[in-house]
Write a protein that binds this DNA or RNA. Sequence first.
DNA 1: GTCACACGTGAAAGATATTTTCGGTTCGGT
DNA 2: ACCGAACCGAAAATATCTTTCACGTGTGAC
Lengths: 301, 301
Amino acid sequence: MTQDVKEIFGSPVGSLAAKVRTLAPSMTRSMQRVAEAVANDPAGCAALTVTGLAELTGTSEATVVRTARLLGYPGYRDLRLALAGLAAQQQSGRAPAITTDIAVDDSLDDVVAKLAYEEQQTLADTAAGLDTGQLGAAVTALVAARRTDVYGVGASGLVAQDLTQKLLRIGLIAHAHSDPHLAVTNAVQLRSGDVAIAITHSGTTGDVIEPLRVAFERGATTVAVTGRPDAPVTQYADLVLTTSTSRETELRPAAMSSRTSQLLVVDCLFVGVAQRTYETAAPALAASYEALAHRHRSASR
Amino acid sequence: MTQDVKEIFGSPVGSLAAKVRTLAPSMTRSMQRVAEAVANDPAGCAALTVTGLAELTGTSEATVVRTARLLGYPGYRDLRLALAGLAAQQQSGRAPAITTDIAVDDSLDDVVAKLAYEEQQTLADTAAGLDTGQLGAAVTALVAARRTDVYGVGASGLVAQDLTQKLLRIGLIAHAHSDPHLAVTNAVQLRSGDVAIAITHSGTTGDVIEPLRVAFERGATTVAVTGRPDAPVTQYADLVLTTSTSRETELRPAAMSSRTSQLLVVDCLFVGVAQRTYETAAPALAASYEALAHRHRSASR
DNA sequence: GTCACACGTGAAAGATATTTTCGGTTCGGT
DNA sequence: ACCGAACCGAAAATATCTTTCACGTGTGAC
């Protein structure tokens, strides 16, 4: 049977090269060749069978097995598993060395990796910078609101729609407005106890500030979701939820990272509200799921 | 011969759990048991032979091999190697071990942390599972397309809009359709050389499949962005971009993580296209930025 | 309700990889 | 040169992995 995996990985795997050096003197010439190959290219050797490694080193299977034994493994099979582990560690070790700027000549693999990395970074930043006090206050206001209006244009408009879609699904009355005129005319209808949320990365988007100002003056609880906590929009905001502002590059416009950040904030709002209204939210979510079922074709299996 | 080691470790090993989730629906009961065992205890399974794992899961060797194949390895031997690598990685980088499930009585701090963590996880999984070959082909098709239609309803509709917004900004002709009827009537206009993209997490949304089918039959290049690579929608897709499928909980509907995943894919498409058309894309981006400037109020400081 | 069919499944045969055995070879000492 | 011991690899033996195939089960059509 195979050696217990704890023993394989329990002893520092990085010590393999060291072990080779220590034991080299007590090895025969052929075995040294095998050990050397293993120490130099663990990943490559992990891909080889006994026969393969024997051929590569110009030796025989028997020698390979003998070497594996000398290195402390029950057989070649286990040495190979350890090598695979070592290779994986080496890989992960040099992972974080990404230049995050996306260049024109980057391969698609790089693009995917860098984008994913950047967005992860954005999420971490946002989570770290989010004021849960403000967030809690916003949730409280939403739960109590008669109705909620959400303003956002451009990319932020989609975030606004995302939020309203979700709030509607748990029984709240929410509307998203991308049209500045309609937004203002609707804002006029708001009154104390209602909630208005403005989503703008720059915090300077007039089309969004204007309706928020109106809502503010009508006495509604106003919330600004912005990357600039000192921007004009916050003048009319009772509560400010700060999104993260990450460096933008030529190929990665600000809209991309701000969207990620805004969505996280919006998700937090949603989950916060869902928690507080669990009694009604849970069945509502289940019901909306059910209602959609018939619009899906049966899966292939 | 054994699979090239670069392929085993080239893609982040952490993707295994994600792959299991993605493929689980298309698995048979026995295979699911095996996949589950592997996902839950990679280290333990790495120590087992086919027979051992078959006994542990109460199945047969054949089933174990079949599962390994489904997960993308040539056979059990290679899966085992990958598991050893995974185990080693887990050892070195201590597992975050957060209970990611969001409970009703979690504090807002917990909610923020868990949501951010889950979304980060989703991004990593998506990046790991994305086929850059398919992605590249999709980019090529987009660059050459006379026009591009994007279909998506519900939450995916917002992603569709996000994509078209961005493509428009770099001079491509793209439309998003959330209305199934309009989508179909527009799809009829497509012809060879055009591109149609369907975005659906489940891959079974009839409202989105139908226009894609029409586009497919008209000879357009069709792309499916879905979490289920074996779903009905892929029947009519020349190219499939797989989004990640993460566990959904009561307070965190699937729509939330699929949206994150879909957005990453869409961003990758966008950046890929922007790279290829850099000469025109860069000035176009700058110009659209300029055009919006006058809609922003000057910052307070 | 019953039949036919397709699918999932595991037992066992077949193929491959690993380990062991064993005899030939080399090299140092006498 | 001869002897012996250690080294080495070919090939047999074993373990492991893969494939095949037939059986059971459930499902849809009639």
